[in-house]
Amino acid sequence: MELTINGTKHEVDIEPDTPLLWVLRDELGMTGTKYGCGLAQCGACTVLVDGQATRSCVTSVESVARSEIMTIEAITEDTVGQKLVEAWVSNQVPQCGYCQSGQVMAATALLKQSPQPTDEDIAAAMVNLCRCGTYNAIAAAVRQAAEA
């Protein structure tokens, strides 16, 4: 099976129902995408599939074989992503940091679709869990990146 990840093609030999998350992490060594719950509850595993924020823990690799997949590993190569990273740093968002790859990816999808999001747009898109409670800093960083 061929996957297009961050603009590069990868050939993987894997059961087609394997979640994308574990192909990224164990087959391709891209561990920036995190496992949190495996049930699409927490969003730590969020990647972009054809620009859409997608929970890779419940997405079979087979279903994304013809899609463009973007992971946190390519975040600074993306204009919107780079802007968000700078906003994340400037707002000192992360604490433990474990959920932040997914948060940044969710924000990237949001700003690609709505470059000038309202607070309601941000609330509707930024639904990933953070046990450290960095939610206010996340929202501030998204607003800052949108204005940058």
Binding site: T76, Q92, P94, G97, V104
Partner: peptide
């Protein structure tokens, strides 16, 4: 003072036990 680990944690580079190989 800015935290030392924020950029790595914002770009997926921070490594936790679960990521090691």
């Amino acid at each position: 003072v800015a935290r030392l680990d924020v950029r790595d944690k914002s770009t997926g580079k921070a490594q936790y036990t679960i990521d090691l190989k």
